[in-house]
């Protein structure tokens, strides 16, 4: 099941058709929940006050939050005024453009360092361990030599969970004992990656609520230890966000960015009925790019973030 994909400069770009069908498949599972909501809205003949209310309802229900919703609607109203639009159906492409304008395409991922150390962080239950397994497979498929580092020594059986994945994906793993110091595991993992010449070390950390002072301090320590094990490490810190999260997602991203300088976001569980609209606020306020989207439970269900597919998911068209 591991097919090599060669010739990708960034090492992670999946051919577009495959990506699109995967994304569609993931969204197909969720589309029935809200299908038709927008069709009804944009099928209407002319733009009425109700149209704006319904548009607001749509965006808020996709978790875009009050500020983003207000700014999108304001922009659309402006477009209607200056563009002389009168039909609701004409709003659709305008909305799509407005939403797209608020998302950066994911930057190409390049890791000059060898090994490059990537730290995955996030609150409890956001999907870090599953995501790390998926990332491991993706990078390995791209021909990288990947080492998994299981440094969630707190949650019961978190280490076992990643070990099972490592076995299934045939990836090497350095794992800590439950209750042991996560910093020590990270140190061992990175050293092993250095001596054995791996390209990438993917580090799983324990889930922690961003409001827990001591746990955030522990995470900072893990980050410092990584730097001691290898100068420049971690080379990337990715925050795994559950796409079903509401307004709290921004607070999470803010706190993790402040603590460990998060460099990118992974939106997990986007195959559920949730739309992940908080990505807009995170992009706007924190300037953090969305790198990947989790679209299912299988190891291959992780794709580079595609703003167009994401916006289509919100529009459900």
């Amino acid at each position: 099941m591991r097919q090599a994909q060669k010739g990708c400069t960034s090492g992670i770009i999946t051919p577009m058709p495959e990506l699109f069908s995967r994304w569609k498949e993931g969204l197909a599972r969720s589309s029935k929940a809200t299908f038709g909501r927008l069709a009804g809205l944009f099928g209407a003949t002319e733009i009425k006050p109700d149209t704006w209310d319904e548009l607001e309802a749509l965006l808020i229900q996709a978790d875009l939050g009050l500020e983003t919703t207000a700014s999108v609607i304001e922009a659309l109203r402006g477009g209607v005024r200056t563009g002389g639009l009168t039909r609701a159906s004409e709003l659709q492409s305008l909305l799509e453009a407005e939403l797209l304008a608020r998302l950066d395409p994911p930057p190409a991922l390049e890791f000059p360092a060898k090994p490059a150390v990537i730290l995955l962080v996030g609150v409890n239950g956001s999907g870090k361990t599953t995501t790390i397994a998926k990332l491991g497979r993706r990078f390995a498929d791209d021909g990288k030599r990947v080492l998994l580092v299981a440094a969630d020594t707190f949650r019961a059986a978190a280490v076992d969970q990643l070990q099972v994945w490592a076995g299934r994906l045939n990836l090497p793993i350095i794992a800590g004992q439950m209750g042991s110091d996560p910093g020590a595991v990270v140190y061992d993992g990175i050293q092993s990656a250095v001596t054995k010449g791996y390209d990438l070390a993917l580090v799983d950390t324990a889930g922690r609520l961003h409001t827990r002072y001591n746990l955030m301090e522990e995470l900072k320590k893990v980050q410092r230890v990584a730097g001691k094990a290898l100068a420049g490490a971690p080379h990337a810190v990715w925050l795994v966000l559950d796409a079903t999260t509401g307004q709290n997602a921004l607070a999470q991203a803010r706190a993790f960015k402040q603590a460990v300088s998060v460099t990118g976001i992974i939106l997990a569980k986007l195959d559920t009925s949730a739309r992940g609209g908080m990505a807009f606020a995170i992009q706007r306020e924190l300037g953090l790019p969305i790198l990947f989207a989790g679209l299912g439970e299988k190891p291959e269900d992780l794709t580079p973030f595609d703003p167009e597919a994401f916006v289509k998911g919100i529009m459900n068209s």
Binding site: D63, D242, T244, T245, G246, Q247, S273, A274
Partner: peptide, 15 residues
């Protein structure tokens, strides 16, 4: 239910 869940909570609960 996770206290951090957003608008989808309604559809999740209905389902």
């Amino acid at each position: 239910v996770d206290a951090m869940i957003g608008q989808e909570a309604l559809h999740v609960a209905e389902g």
